[in-house]
Each structure stands twice: as structure tokens, then as C-alpha cells.
Amino acid sequence: MAVQTLSPETHIKSTQSWGRYVIILVAIVGFVMAAEGLAAMIYQHIEFATSYDAPRNPNFRRGWVEYTRPPATREPNERRIILISNSQGFLRERPEDEFVYASQLEMLLNQQADGSNYQVLNWSIPGGNAPEYILLAARAAAHDPDMILLVTYSQDFVEDLHPIAFYISDANRLGYLSDVRRYLPAEFIRQYAINDPLAWLEAHTYLGNMRNRLEIPQNDSWTWEAREKRDRPRGLHRFKEWIEQAEREMQFLNDTLLAALPDTPIVIVQTPINDLAFTQDSLNQAEQFIPRLQAHFESNPNVTILNASDIIAPETFYPDGVHFRPEGHRQFAEWLLPVVNNTLETISR
């Protein structure tokens, strides 16, 4: 490479040549465009699993834009159920997809052989929380689902999407997609700062998508061993803070569901809970959860709220006290089966 050394003349303070700066600018733009083109070529050759062909996101907490891509077509007999949930729906402790309750529910539904092809799309984010569910609910509109199943509990309505921790999911990228953003309440966008120009650029360029692919996962993000029992029961944020935050997030969720899925039945299920793993504060919170949900979703005729908190015995949970074992997943799927059937039957009528 030819290297031009600095000539003494360039030290002299002189009028700049504007042409030189135009060339520099063109070179920058050209360089960046070339890199974007290269990234496009690479990105388009990457095969991303979607929720239609993978029972859970193979990229763990990343790649939510790709994993929740809507399909091009829909079969006439297809019944589409979107499950939005947290790590309990993900079953990170086991590598086998078939143990996940979403898979088991899909299998049970299809075993009915009623002529329908049931698809249970498992949108469970390990560590997922309310803001992510809101983004996923908005994303669901593009899939034209027959039903939304939101399996959640009080603690999901505590944590913020911001500040985005290193290991958090990239579901916030969904908020920059126009077919998601249009359903999001303006206040939600403001509160969770889904208006960062750099993040917008990351979501809308191939280079940005490639960057997201390259992001290094946080430690223990994809291990298959059940974690050791915690030293102490899971404590929670202060009760008052929880109420304030939860109220806000429930309102955002309802607003989003009304805007994105005005005619779709939505079933919100309080997830199975292991009482022994929680502090009294947490249990108090859990008890408040359903009444508060009911108060918020009263105005939404599509929403049904159910409680599954005590359907799984404590010994069916892993030692971490939060996630249930494969047999628990089976029990939960069996519990959900009539719920789904009844809901879908109601629509058919």
C-alpha cells in the first residue's frame, strides 16, 4: 500500500481544499455502503430458525426478530396459538425440545385428530418480563393468531427493559419494526426509550443485524444443567414499587393487545409456582397478581384470566425452586389442553 508522508507544506496554515473533504466524505459513504452490501450478502445466506420450525428459540435470548418472523402463507386448516412466556416455558435445564410444555401442548392438540393442524409457537424468553411480552404481543399481530396464551406471574411485572443489561434479550429490537411499533403505546416507547437512533440503525441495517448475531452471550446463558438451589428464597423488589410498576405495565399490555389483536382471544395464565421457594412478600405479591390483572383487563372482552399457580407439586420443580421438571411440563400441557380447546371452540361458534 502506498503511504504518503506528510509534506512540510501541509503544516502551513492554509485555506482548505473543499474538494478533498468531498472525496473523504464519498470514501466514507462508499466504504460503509460496501460493508453494508457485504453484510447483506452474508446475512441473507444465514438460515434463521423461526418459531414455526423450532419449538423454542435456538438463539436463547437473542435473535427475536428472526425467530418471530411471520410465515409467507397460512394453511386453511391451521390453528395458530402463540405462547408468550418466560424461562418456565423455555425449560433451559433440558436440551430436548419435546419436553417443553408448548411442544407437549401442540402434540396433545394434534392427537385429537379433529382435522386441524395446530401450531403452538413458543415465544418464551428466558428471564422474560412484561416489556418484552408487550413487544411480542405487538409482533403477534402479523401472525394472525387464533389465540394468544400469555403464561406469566407477578415477578415478570417487576423488571425493566432498561437499562438493558448485557445479557438481556434483544426483543427490544422488535420495537423498531414498523409493524410492531404502530401498536405500542407512545408512553411505553418513551418509558423504555425505544427511540434510540443507534438502536434504530442497528435494527434496520444488515450490519446491525450482523452485529446482533455476533453479540457474545452472557455467562451461563446456555447451559443444560439445573442450577444449584439458591442460598435463600427469592426475594423481590419492594412491594410498593412492584405495584406501581406492575400497574403501568399491565396498562401498557392491555393497550397493546387492544390495538394489535382486537379480535383475538387472549388467555392470561398465572404460572405454576413453588410456594416453598418464595418469601412471604413474594407470595403476597403473587396473591395480588390476578385481582390486579382482572381490574386492568376488565375492559377487554377478549381476555380470560386463569390461575395455575398450584397445579404442580413442589417436588416437581427443579432445585432452583422456579422451573419445573419435564413431568411438570407435561402436567401443565394437560392442564392447558381444555383451556385452549374451549377458547378455540368459542371462536368457532
Binding site: I23, I24, A27, A35, E202, L207, R211
Partner: peptide, 18 residues
């Protein structure tokens, strides 16, 4: 050389972005 300068700056901007 303006092209080299532009490419270098473009490279740094891209590196930061990525």
C-alpha cells in the same frame, strides 16, 4: 490521500458500530 483517510474513518465508524 482523501480516499485513504475516508476509508480509515469509515473503517473506524464501522468498527465502533459493529
Amino acid at each position: 490521500h482523501p480516499v485513504l483517510v475516508g476509508a480509515f474513518w469509515g473503517g473506524l465508524i464501522l468498527f465502533m458500530f459493529m
